[in-house]
Design a protein around this nucleic acid. Sequence first.
DNA 1: CGTGATTTTGACGACACTCAAATAAAGTGG
DNA 2: CCACTTTATTTGAGTGTCGTCAAAATCACG
Lengths: 258, 258
Amino acid sequence: MLRLRSTIDCTTPGDSASESCIGCQISICSHLDAAGLDRLRAMSWTIKFAKNKMLFEQGEVLDRVCIISVGVVKLVHLLPDGQKQITGFLGPGDILGGIKRQENAHGSAKALTAVEACAFNRENFLQLIKDYPDLCLNLLTAATDEIEALTDHIVLLGRKRAPQRLAAFLLMMSQRWNADTDTANNNGTMVHLPMPRADIADHLGLTIETVSRTFGLFRSSKFISIPRPNDIVLSNLAALYDLAGFDEIPTRHVALGL
Amino acid sequence: MLRLRSTIDCTTPGDSASESCIGCQISICSHLDAAGLDRLRAMSWTIKFAKNKMLFEQGEVLDRVCIISVGVVKLVHLLPDGQKQITGFLGPGDILGGIKRQENAHGSAKALTAVEACAFNRENFLQLIKDYPDLCLNLLTAATDEIEALTDHIVLLGRKRAPQRLAAFLLMMSQRWNADTDTANNNGTMVHLPMPRADIADHLGLTIETVSRTFGLFRSSKFISIPRPNDIVLSNLAALYDLAGFDEIPTRHVALGL
DNA sequence: CGTGATTTTGACGACACTCAAATAAAGTGG
DNA sequence: CCACTTTATTTGAGTGTCGTCAAAATCACG
């Protein structure tokens, strides 16, 4: 099961949501000539999922590849005893699907919000890749990035405690999909969390209660404030970065040039 | 940092160790025509590392790609507070290196045993990939496999207890590099562990003591026996598979047709 | 405003970590 | 080949973080 997070901003100004999967400059669409873009347009179609609908189930045959244009998807792995582990969240620009022959989904994918995606037939997708080596190399680079991200998460789960895990999670969330809602007011940076506490717990290898308690710890430590459960204001970024174990606060690279 | 584990057996009978990086049928060498093999031979060279030598350090510039032909390498991630997490072990046929421009190593790589590898200059490697789309697609497929393997490890670290983790580790080890030492005698399957307990602990997100205690638990439960600390006999595979959370015992696919 | 889901808070227990020491194994030099 | 040193592994006792069970408070939605 291929799962890649794009490093390039997908939401190009002027594109409507329904067309954003074609016209935008995400990883796969860039580096294509006019003929390639025409082929892309001809072979792709748009799929939509309501909130909480399954994109696919664990074990299901995966013969399509899709690029998310709107919304957030969670990747869930079920254990025989009923436990869950969420191995990642995907958003606009991220790629998900099967590229191997007769591939079965390694995990389930569920829409956290309303989701729109640009879909391709696997065979068409593979042929396009073969015809555009640069595109294939881009995908390989993106796969390398995903491998590094998963590696970081392994370090998080293997060697970090609850506060460190949550701090890293909040900072990750603030950097990925909150470019516009990241309105820096005098109190801090606002982050919207599209997932409930249970999903955060299943992502960080904790329980709902521990996640909630750690949120409470951060609030009483004045690191954050919680106007609503899913809206977190990061009021002490330095403390959070320190907890997360990052060496420094990276300079933001936002589309609008902040 | 690219890191791929090969799914194809590397040790082709008849190849000497020093030539195995060229002559073998590992993922990258297969699907190449005669001209491609010549190019591969011309651009590659052999590097050797003694036991416990670093292949590269975290943060170091990575402008080479290598394919391990002999030995085992551990991938280590250091945390600011001195803790370690081993994100994987690589062996014969596995690929490691940098393919991005001005890439810095995301983690360190250290030789667990004496190691030989087949090395490529990054630019040459990338050009070869561009000229052979099938090869690039193969790498993308291998990257997908690596992503799935890392995902499985995330599930292990996030939702499994010490016994389950160690059981999964032992079974994984018995399947990857023990095709010949897997002599099934009447007592069980022999597995040789090339790494010390500390590395197992750092891989499974545990401490040395917990790993040792869990080995002791398995021994007193008659799941395993330990003739020497690094040689484990799996005497109750069914129990280990059950612990690890695998649904069934997979049929072995060994080179010799077992 | 009322119902159901989500989140928070509390009390208690268990699994794994820390600290400490003993035992076993591996390497070294005579 | 054997004493010696060094490293690795095992075992023990006590502590702490996080999980489990339970209930209250808050939020979302019709």
